[in-house]
Nucleic acid binder design. Structure first.
Length: 586
RNA sequence: GCGCCCGUAGCUCAGCUGGAUAGAGUACCGCCCUCCGAAGGCGGGGGUCACAGGUUCGAAUCCUGUCGGGCGCGCCA
C-alpha cells in the first residue's frame, strides 16, 4: 500500500517536471510515511515542503499542483493538503479488507520479506568465556542477538549464527588450575585457594567428577604445589603472579597430557552447560568456533605474518606491536607478548579475517558495551589487512540491571556470587526473559524488573500479548462448541461488513506489520516489534470488549472470525520472531 | 584527563536519517462483567523533552558547550 502511494506521488512529480514546474535534477525523492494522527488520513508525504525551495513556490501551492497531477486510484478514497503543506492520503475501506485474505493465505509467511535478497550475513553473539555458567548479563546479548538474527532471516538474509569459544588463553588456565586445586581439596589436601581463582560451586562440581572417576590419580601434595610460588595477595603478594605460578606448577607436576585432560574436562563440562542453557533459551547456533583451533591451525600466525609483511608491525620492549593508531585507534596494540605468546587480540584479528574470507556479505558482532573500546582496533586490523572494515558492524548491548523487590540483584563472576541465566529462566520463564531483554533498544541501559517479569497479570507486557492470542483461541473454542465453522472455505465476500471503527483500525494496524518487521530487522531494533505487538494486542482487547464476535448474523460473524484469525496469525508470527511462545490457553 | 552510551510524565521507557496539539505502560482517581476468558476495556489528572547557545519555514530530534549517570582506556579475555 505504501509503495503504491509512493508510486502515485512519483508519477505526479514526473508530470510536474514535464510541465516545466520542477527541474528534474534538483527534485528530492518523495518520502511516504504513515500518518501519525487518524485525522490526517492513512499516509502522508512532505514532498511539497522539501521541494518548495527548488520549485520557487510556497509549499501549499506546490502541493496543489502536485495533487492535480496525481493519477486516479481505486484504493485511494481521498487526498487533501494540510498544515504547512503535507499531502494526506485516505485509503478506501476495501483496500484494507483485501488484507485479510492476504494474511490468511500467507500464514506463517506473512510479514516476511525479501530485501535481504539472499545475502549472507554472519551474526556472532554471546561468545562468553567458557570459564563458568552464563549469567544474566549474558542473557541480554543472547536474546538480542538471537532476535536480530531471526529478523534478518525473516527479511530475506541467509543468516549464520556463531559462538566464538575462547578456549585458549590465560583465563582458561586459571579455570583448569582452579578445578585441580578443588580436586586436591577433595583428595584431602589442605590449601589456601588462590584469591584470583574461580570460586563458584560449579568448580567444585567439576572437581568432584574428576575425583569420582579418577580417585587420587591426579593428586599431588599441597606443599609440592605451593612451595616456592610467589605469595598471594592476602599474604602481601601479587594475586596475578601467584595464580600464574600455580598454573606453571600445575602444568609441570601433571605433565602436558594430564594437565590437558583436566583443562578439557573443565572446558567441556562448562561448554555443554552453556550450550544446553542457550538451547533451552531458544538460542541455537550454526557453529561454535574454537579460538584454540585458530591457534593450532596456524591462522593466528598467518594473520600476524600478513600484518608484518604489510609493514604494520614493529618490535618494542621485546613485544610485537600492531600500528593501529595509523587507522584511527587510540594507541598501538600488542599482538605478540614479550614471552612469545600471542594475545587475545591476535586471535581476534585472525578470527575476523577468517569471517571475511568465508565470504559473508556482512558480519555482525554483538558485544557487551564494556567492550566498545575494542571496536577501533578490530576495524583497524581489517583495514590494515586490506579488507573493508565497513563489512563489519559491531552492535553494543548495554548492561541490564536486575531488580528484585525494588533492590538491585548484584553479581560478580569471580566470586561465584551471581544470578545465572538458568536461574533467571527458572524464575521468570523463557518467554518473559526473552521478551523483557529485547523490549528496550540495545544502547539503552535497562532495568529488568524480576517481580514484573514473573507476575501473571496485565502489568506484564508479555502476558498481555500472549493473552490476546489465547483469548482468540478461547473464542474459536467457543465457536466450535456452538458448531460454527470457523474456517469457512468460501470467498471473502462478507468482509465488507467490517465497518466498525475498531475493525478498520485493526486492519490498519495489521497492514503495518510487514513494515515493522522490515524496520526492526534493518535497524537491528527488536524493540520495535515488541511495541507493535503490544499495540496490536491492545486494539484487539478493545475490540473484544466493544463487540461480540459470535453474533447471530452469520455473514457478519463470518467476517469477524476472519478478522480475528488474521490477528491471531500476526500475533503468532511476531511472538515467534521474538522466540516467545504463543499459547492457545493460559 | 581522553573516548563511547544515556538524560523525555512520580517510576520504566517509545518517539531521534528534523515536520502537523510530545506518546505508551505503570502508579493514582472514577467508571464498565444477565454478554465469546475482567490475565480485559473506557475516561481523568500528570511534561521548562537535563541546562545554555546555534543551524531554519520548522528542533525532543542536527551542531557546540555545560551539568548529571554508566562504561572503557592491560604484554587480561
Amino acid at each position: 500500500m505504501k509503495s503504491h502511494i509512493a508510486n502515485l506521488v512519483s508519477k505526479a512529480l514526473d508530470q510536474l517536471v514535464v510541465d516545466g514546474l520542477l527541474d528534474a535534477d534538483v527534485v528530492k525523492a518523495p518520502v511516504i510515511e504513515r500518518a501519525r494522527d487518524a485525522s490526517h488520513g492513512d499516509f502522508a508525504t512532505n514532498v511539497a515542503m522539501v521541494n518548495s525551495k527548488v520549485a520557487k513556490m510556497p509549499p501549499r501551492d506546490l502541493a496543489a499542483r502536485l495533487v492535480e497531477r496525481l493519477p486516479a486510484s481505486a484504493g485511494v478514497a481521498g487526498v487533501e493538503i494540510a498544515g504547512p503543506g503535507f499531502i494526506n492520503f485516505r485509503l478506501a475501506d476495501n483496500a484494507y479488507h483485501a488484507l485479510i485474505p492476504e494474511i490468511l493465505g500467507q500464514g506463517h509467511a506473512f510479514g516476511r520479506g525479501r530485501i535481504g535478497a539472499g545475502k549472507r550475513v554472519q551474526v556472532e553473539f554471546v561468545s562468553a568465556n567458557p570459564t563458568g555458567p552464563l549469567h544474566v548479563g549474558h542473557g541480554r546479548g543472547a536474546a538480542y542477538g538471537a532476535v536480530v538474527a531471526d529478523l534478518l532471516e525473516a527479511v530475506g538474509y541467509e543468516v549464520y549464527r556463531e559462538y566464538y569459544v575462547n578456549d585458549a588463553g590465560r583465563q582458561m588456565d586459571i579455570l583448569a588450575t582452579s578445578v585441580w586445586l578443588r580436586y586436591l581439596e577433595l583428595c584431602g589436601e589442605a590449601l589456601d585457594f588462590p584469591s584470583n581463582g574461580y570460586r563458584g560451586d560449579y568448580v567444585w562440581d567439576i572437581a568432584a567428577t574428576l575425583h569420582r572417576d579418577h580417585a587420587d590419580d591426579y593428586r599431588q601434595a599441597a606443599g609440592a604445589v605451593f612451595d616456592g610460588v610467589p605469595p598471594d595477595d592476602p599474604a602481601g603478594g601479587d594475586k596475578e603472579a601467584h595464580i600464574d605460578g600455580l598454573i606453571a606448577r600445575a602444568k609441570r607436576l601433571l605433565g602436558d597430557n594430564r594437565y590437558r585432560f583436566v583443562f578439557e574436562l573443565g572446558l567441556n563440562v562448562i561448554l555443554d552447560d552453556i550450550r544446553d542453557d542457550l538451547h533451552l533459551f531458544g538460542v541455537d547456533y550454526q557453529e561454535w568456533y574454537s579460538e584454540r583451533s585458530l591457534v593450532e591451525s596456524g591462522a593466528v600466525n598467518k594473520a600476524i605474518d600478513r600484518l608484518r609483511d604489510a609493514g604494520q608491525l614493529y618490535e618494542k620492549a621485546g613485544a610485537w606491536w600492531f600500528r593501529s593508531t595509523a587507522f584511527g585507534d587510540a594507541k598501538d596494540r600488542v599482538v605478540v607478548r614479550e614471552n612469545g605468546q600471542t594475545t587475545y587480540f591476535a586471535s581476534d584479528i585472525a578470527y575476523h579475517m577468517d569471517k571475511l574470507e568465508r565470504g559473508f556479505d556482512r558480519v555482525i558482532d554483538v558485544w557487551g558495551a564494556d567492550h566498545h573500546g575494542y571496536v577501533p582496533r578490530v576495524k583497524a586490523a581489517l583495514q590494515a589487512l586490506g579488507d573493508d572494515p565497513s563489512r563489519l558492524d559491531v552492535l553494543l548491548v548495554q548492561f541490564a540491571i536486575l531488580y528484585r523487590g525494588g533492590q538491585k540483584a548484584q553479581m560478580s563472576t569471580r566470586s561465584g556470587d551471581f544470578v545465572t541465566l538458568r536461574e533467571l529462566r527458572k524464575e521468570v520463564g523463557r518467554d518473559a526473559a526473552r521478551f523483557f531483554y529485547v523490549m528496550r533498544k540495545c544502547e539503552q541501559h535497562m532495568d529488568f524488573d524480576l517481580d514484573l517479569a514473573k507476575s501473571q497479570s496485565s502489568d506484564n507486557p508479555v502476558y498481555y500479548v500472549q493473552y490476546a492470542h489465547a483469548r482468540i483461541h478461547a473464542v474459536l473454542r467457543q465457536a466450535a462448541e456452538k458448531l460454527i465453522d470457523v474456517e469457512p472455505s468460501e470467498g471473502m465476500g462478507s468482509l465488507e461488513r467490517l465497518s466498525e471503527t475498531h475493525e478498520l483500525d485493526l486492519l490498519k494496524t495489521l497492514s503495518r506489520y510487514p513494515e515493522v518487521v522490515e524496520a526492526a530487522a534493518t535497524q537491528e531494533e527488536p524493540h520495535q516489534l515488541t511495541h507493535y505487538l503490544r499495540e496490536l494486542a491492545n486494539e484487539f482487547h478493545t475490540y473484544y470488549n466493544a463487540h461480540q464476535f459470535l453474533v447471530d448474523d452469520a455473514v457478519l460473524r463470518d467476517a469477524r472470525i476472519k478478522l480475528i484469525l488474521a490477528i491471531r496469525e500476526v500475533l503468532r508470527n511476531g511472538l515467534n520472531l521474538l522466540g516467545v511462545s504463543a499459547p492457545e490457553q493460559m
